[in-house]
């Protein structure tokens, strides 16, 4: 079944995302929080998760990592800029950099 294969891929991606997040946080906490858009409390929690907890979190039928751009309008401006000057990646990075971290309190 095609859909089962896709769900397997979601599980894999979720797990890979969590493992990457932990490695980023261990490497350089402040930069990791910037890259992941998470607050301090969330960084603490993620860092402490054990293999069993990571697996459980991953095995859902939805993606754990969320889309990095705010609106379709903004994304269109990035991908369909009629006056594109080879700065699309820079533009994308700039727009994502201005996004605040998701607060774990607000998420709850």
């Amino acid at each position: 079944m095609q859909i089962n294969k896709l769900i397997d891929e979601i599980h894999e991606l979720n797990l890979a995302y969590l493992l990457l997040a932990q490695r980023l946080i261990n490497e350089d906490r402040a930069s990791a929080r910037f890259r992941l858009k998470i607050d301090d409390e969330m960084a603490d929690l993620l860092q402490e998760l054990n293999a069993r907890q990571l697996t459980r979190l991953s095995r859902v039928n939805q993606l754990l990592c969320h889309f990095g751009h705010d609106s379709a309008e903004q994304l269109r401006q990035l991908t369909h800029n009629p006056r594109e000057q080879g700065l699309a990646q820079f533009h994308a990075s700039l727009l994502m950099a201005s996004r605040p971290a998701v607060s774990s309190a607000a998420e709850g």
Binding site: A30, D39, D40, F90, S93, A97, P100, A101
Partner: peptide
């Protein structure tokens, strides 16, 4: 301006959100 803006956005984020 483009380079400065990218840098400053990151800087603000780190200082304001991440308590650096």
């Amino acid at each position: 301006n483009i380079h400065s803006s990218l840098f400053y956005n990151i800087f603000l984020r780190l200082q304001e959100d991440h308590g650096c």
